[in-house]
Amino acid sequence: MFEARLVQCSMLKKVLEAIKELLNEATFDCSDAGIQLQAMDNSHVSLVSLNLRSDGFDKYRCDRNLSMGINLASMTKIMKCAGNDDVLTIKAQDNADNVMFMFESQNQEKVSDYDMKLINLDQEHLGIPETDYSCIIKMPSGEFARICRDLSQFGESVVISCTKEGVKFSAAGDVGAANIKLAQTANVDKEEEAVTIEMQEPVTLTFACRYLNSFTKATALSPQVQLSMSADVPLVVEYKIGDFGHIRYYLAPKIEE
C-alpha cells in the first residue's frame, strides 16, 4: 500500500509544470524514503532528477517499493482538476496498474477522486557520480529565467562564463550579440535576491538555449537556483523544493567543432 498526503497540492502542480515540457512520461519510484524520478528527454541531451522526501508530506506510507509509470499529459489533466488549496492524497495498492488522486477542499465539502492507469516504462537509469564542481553559482531563479528568455532571442546557444568577478551569459546570431554580466552581490536584505559564486577554477561552457528555457519552468518552486559547472561535464541546474528536496536538471554541453 502506498499513500501520500499533501495539504497544499500546488507543490505537485508546480513539479509537474517543471517536468512536462522535457518529458512525455516518467517513472515515479516510491520507497520509504520518498518519491524519486529520473528521466532523460527524448534526445538524451538533458536529464531530470526529482527527489521528494517522505518527511515533507503530511502523511506518507509506502509498505513496498513501487514504480509508477505515468503519462505526464494524463497526470496534467487530472492535476488541473484540483484547486491550489485542495488537500491531495495519492494512493496505490502494491503491484497496482492504476493510481488514485483524491482532492479535498479545505472545508471538506467537496471531495473528488481520479483514477489513472499506470504504464510500463522501460527507462534507462544513469549513474551520476558525485562531482566537485569548479564553479557554483547561486542566483535568483527569476533572474535566471529572464536571462535565458532574453538570450534565446539572439541564438540557439548560450555561453556561460564564470570567473571570481562574476558570471557572464552570452549569445550571438543573425540579429547580433548579447552579453549579460552578473557580479556577486555585495550585501542584500533578502537572501533569495543574492548572487553568490564559489569558484575553484574559471569555467566557460556552451549550452543549448531551449533546454535552459525548459528548466526555468521550475522557477515557481524556488526563489533561488544553483548552477554547478566544471569543464567538459554536464551543467547541473538545481531548484530546492521547500521541505521536500529538490529538482535537478543535467544538461550536456555543446562542444565547439
Binding site: 538524451h44 537509469h125 544513469l126 549513474g127 540557439e156 556552451t206 543549448a208 567543432e257
Partner: peptide, 14 residues
Amino acid sequence: MSGQKKLSSFFKTV
C-alpha cells in the same frame, strides 16, 4: 544540432 553532446558521453547506464 552540431556539437551537441549526449548525456551517455558522461554518465553510464546503471
